[in-house]
Design a binder for these strands. Structure first.
Length: 190
DNA sequence: TGGGCGATTCGCT
DNA sequence: GCGAATCGCCCAC
């Protein structure tokens, strides 16, 4: 059976609220290591919780560039978080990748993470960056070129929706998307 | 130029 | 469930 088609930069040149749910079930690989995306969050440019809300800064420059590129930032001084930049038109929106179901490169993930259980490898934005070896070196790289490989979902998975995690602004907006019934989520949906 | 603060994780209770 | 770890970013002084 052939692999699903690779996603193109045009896929990301749409509203973050359309792109985010369509990423559930897609396959994300970094250097041959990765799996199926099971959880994401949307950050729109009109959203007070978005890093781009206050305008361009050195950190968020990539968000104000063209869609289809990686925005990687440091969280709590410790972890890295990976985003897809969306929507070109004078805006700055992105999708945060929060959890994967690991399918390729399990040994590399276990080595990087220092844990054995598959559920603990990629069940959180910081965890999956560690497992896939994503750092600030990937900030500004295109998703349709190495080391990234992104393939479309197969069929239409059942999607659950809920409020986003760990933020203090716009906390009630239901812009977190997950694969229904997945055991690899960072947290259960309410 | 300095202090407060985070799109988190992990270990201990 | 709660709090520490940890540091770059960002804005107010």
């Amino acid at each position: 059976m052939p692999l699903p088609p690779k996603l193109t930069r045009a896929f990301f040149d749409r509203s973050v609220h359309k792109v985010a749910p369509e990423l559930i079930g897609a396959t994300l690989m970094v250097g041959g290591v990765g799996g199926v995306i099971v959880e994401v969050e949307a950050y729109h440019h009109t959203d007070p919780a978005s890093h781009s809300f206050g305008g361009p800064t050195p950190r968020n420059t990539v968000m104000f560039g063209p869609p289809g590129f990686a925005y990687v930032y440091r969280s709590y001084g410790i972890h890295w978080c990976l985003n897809f930049v969306c929507e070109r038109e004078g805006s700055a929106s992105a999708v945060l990748i929060r959890a994967l179901e690991p399918t390729e490169g399990l040994a590399a993930m276990r080595r990087r993470r220092g844990v054995a259980e598959a559920r603990a490898l990629c069940s959180g934005p910081g965890k999956l960056c560690e497992a896939l070896g994503v750092t600030v070196k990937h900030n500004g790289l295109a998703f349709d070129r190495a080391p990234f490989e992104l393939r479309a979902r197969v069929g239409k998975p059942e999607i659950v929706v809920g409020p986003r995690i760990g933020i203090t602004k716009a906390v009630d907006e239901p812009w977190r998307y997950g694969l229904k019934g997945s055991r690899f989520l960072s947290k259960p949906f309410p």
